[in-house]
Design a protein around this nucleic acid. Structure first.
Lengths: 146, 146
DNA sequence: GACATATAGTTGTTTATGCAACTAAACAAA
DNA sequence: TTTGTTTAGTTGCATAAACAACTATATGTC
C-alpha cells in the first residue's frame, strides 16, 4: 500500500496544505496592497459570480466547497459592503439569487489581475509538466475524499 | 511566462487548495469517528510536540505556519482540555515551554494511526512518482512565497 | 387534499484566523 | 545604569468555519 511513501514530516505538510495556505495569505496581502478591501473567502464567492451572475446560495456552496451557513454569512458580508444583492427567485421562493452590484462587477478585472499575478509569483520556476502532474494529484485526492 | 498555464477554473482550485481542505475535513471526521475529541488545528500542534516535547510557543509558530496569537489560543484550548501544560522556562523567563501531559502523550498512537489511514484514503491510486512531483511543486510554491 | 419528505436558507455556539496594539523580559550600547 | 531595541507572549476585534437545530417552501404519494 501507499503507507510508506511519506515520512512523518512530509505527511504533516501534505495534510495541512501549507502551500495553499501560503498562496491564500499572499493573495490577501496583494489585495490589500492594491487597496482591494475584500477577504479571500469573499473573493472566492465573487469569482464564481463573475463567471455566472445570479447563482443561488446552494450553487455557491457547491462551487466554493463551503457549507450553507458559511455562504449565508459570506453573502451577508458581501451584501453589507454592497458588492452583491439577494434577489428572491420567482420560480422557487425558497431560493435567493445572488447578483453582483455595479460595484461588484467593476471589481472583477482588478481582482483577477492580482490573482493571476499571485499565481505567477507562486509558480515561479515550476515547469508546465510539473504543474500538470500536481494538478492531477490534487484532483485525485479530492475525488478520493468526495 | 507561466501566465497561460491555467484556465480560470483551474487557477481557482489551485489557489483555494480544495484538496487540502478535503483532507483536513476528512481527518477531522475520522478523528470524531474514533472518538478523538480534538480539532485538526489542535492535532497540528500536538503532532510537533510528539516529535519534540517542550517546544516554545514561538517554535510552534514556525513549525505550524501559524502566528503568535493563533498559537496562544490553541495552547489555551489544549491546556483547558488537559493535553498540554505551559511551563515557564528557567533560562528565559519570557518563554513558555509547552509540555505534553500523560493524557496528551497517550493520544499519539491513536491519532497518528488515523492520520496515516486518512492519507492513504486520500492518495488511493496515486503513484509514488506522482506524489514525489506533487510534493516538489508544493514545496517550490511554499518557498516562492516565503 | 393531506401528510411525509426533501430542499433552501438562517441562526446559535464553539473554535480558529489575521491584524494591530499591548506587556514583560532580554539584550546591546553608551 | 540608563536608554533603546528585539524577542516572547497576550488581548481585542472582525471575519470565517463546522456542526446542529431551526423555518419555510416545494414535491411526491396515497
Amino acid at each position: 500500500m501507499s503507507n510508506n511513501q511519506f515520512k512523518k514530516g512530509e505527511l504533516y505538510s501534505f495534510i495541512t496544505g501549507k502551500a495553499s495556505t501560503a498562496i491564500g495569505r499572499r493573495l490577501q496581502k496583494n489585495f490589500k496592497q492594491d487597496n482591494i478591501e475584500i477577504t479571500i473567502e469573499q473573493w472566492s464567492v465573487l469569482y464564481h459570480l463573475w463567471k455566472e451572475d445570479g447563482m443561488s446560495q446552494q450553487e455557491l456552496c457547491d462551487a466554493t466547497f463551503r457549507d450553507k451557513p458559511s455562504i449565508t454569512r459570506l453573502v451577508d458580508n458581501l451584501e453589507r459592503i454592497k458588492l452583491v444583492k439577494r434577489n428572491a427567485s420567482k420560480e422557487d421562493r425558497r431560493k435567493n439569487l445572488i447578483v453582483l452590484t455595479t460595484e461588484g462587477k467593476e471589481l472583477e478585472e482588478k481582482c483577477m489581475q492580482v490573482a493571476n499575478n499571485t499565481l505567477n509569483e507562486a509558480l515561479h520556476g515550476v515547469t508546465n509538466g510539473q504543474i500538470e502532474i500536481a494538478k492531477e494529484v490534487l484532483q485525485m485526492v479530492y475525488d478520493n475524499l468526495k
